Amino acid sequence: MPPGDAGLTVGLFGGSFNPPHDGHFHVALTALRRLGLHRIWWLVTPGNPLKDHSELEALEARVAAVRRLADHPRFTVTAFEATEGLSYSADTIAFLKRRRPGVRFVWVMGADNLAGFHRWQFWRQIVETLPIAIVDRPGASLSPLSAPMAEVYRHARVAEEEAGDFACRPAPAWTFLHAPLNPLSSTLLRQHGPMRQDA
């Protein structure tokens, strides 16, 4: 698990990254810059419990691919969830809060994940534990208006122009960050083969 001193602000960007691509880099960099975070930790998961694993590359291969993509001095790539036996994001967050109590964490995800966020294990616990930053993705711009999470926590939405100190805000708090859209997706890459992944 990455080190974390007290006062550090860290965006947690989790996913199977099967494979990682420029769209992922775009989400991470947008969150880093717009939220004024010190670091982004890329959490390469053993596999999404809600997805089919039949086409899932080995964890070691995905970690290596993410490290090649996430070539930035303030990005850290880790797969500690596998070694700690953590399967669900809520458990990962609880573990990190215990092990790194002085770090201020923000959950970072692309907007394409928002529509199904209410199907995540203990999703309300996640929202009530740390701020959530949602970065716009192609085809997902209307999600904040219609997703169950957004409806339930409408009162907790923070305007993006007020999100510069987002890591210091008490949960529940979520913000939607608009940014130039990158159309790449892992599904597209698996269907059509490798595409340019430098950033």
Rank of each mutant, 00 (worst) to 15 (best):
E160D: 11
E81L: 08
L188G: 10
G193I: 14
F117W: 09
E128V: 00
P138W: 07
A179Y: 01
A167I: 09
L189C: 04
P170D: 11
P19C: 09
P170M: 06
R137G: 10
A111Y: 00
L130R: 06
I40G: 03
Q121C: 07
W174D: 04
E162I: 00
N48V: 06
G36V: 01
S146Y: 10
G85E: 04
L29C: 03
F122Q: 15
D112N: 11
I132M: 13
D112V: 13
P3D: 14
G7Q: 15
L32N: 03
L177K: 00
L114C: 05
F25A: 13
H118F: 07
E60F: 03
D5R: 15
A159P: 08
E60P: 03
P180Q: 08
F176L: 05
P148Y: 04
I40M: 02
A82P: 06
L130N: 10
S143Y: 07
I134P: 06
P49D: 11
R119F: 00
P73D: 08
V127F: 04
F13P: 01
S146M: 12
H53Y: 00
W123H: 04
N48I: 07
L56A: 09
L189N: 05
A163C: 12
A31H: 07
S186Y: 11
G15Y: 08
G23M: 06
L130G: 07
L12E: 07
P131L: 04
P46N: 12
A28E: 02
M195A: 08
V106L: 04
L145M: 07
L96D: 12
P20Q: 09
C168D: 15
I93P: 03
A115D: 01
Y153T: 02
S185I: 13
A31W: 03
H192Q: 15
P148F: 03
W42H: 05
G14W: 14
P170E: 14
D198H: 09
E57I: 06
P138Q: 09
T187M: 11
P170A: 08
P20H: 06
A28P: 00
D5L: 14
S185D: 06
A167C: 08
T78A: 12
E128Y: 00
I134V: 15
H53E: 05
V106A: 00
W120Y: 09
W41I: 03
D5F: 08
A140V: 04
R169S: 11
V27P: 01
Y88E: 14
N48M: 11
R157F: 04
K51P: 02
L29V: 09
A79I: 07
I93E: 13
F105N: 11
H118Y: 13
W107N: 10
A31D: 01
A79W: 05
P20M: 10
V103Q: 10
L12W: 08
A65F: 09
A28V: 09
T187K: 13
H53G: 14
R104W: 05
P148Q: 02
L188C: 06
F166N: 08
P131K: 10
D136P: 02
V63A: 06
P101A: 09
R34A: 14
L142W: 08
S89T: 15
P144Q: 05
D198Y: 07
Y88V: 04
A58H: 12
P46L: 05
M109F: 06
P172M: 10
A171S: 12
A61F: 08
M195Q: 14
L50F: 07
A133F: 02
E151S: 07
R169K: 14
W107M: 09
F17L: 14
G11T: 08
V158P: 00
G193C: 05
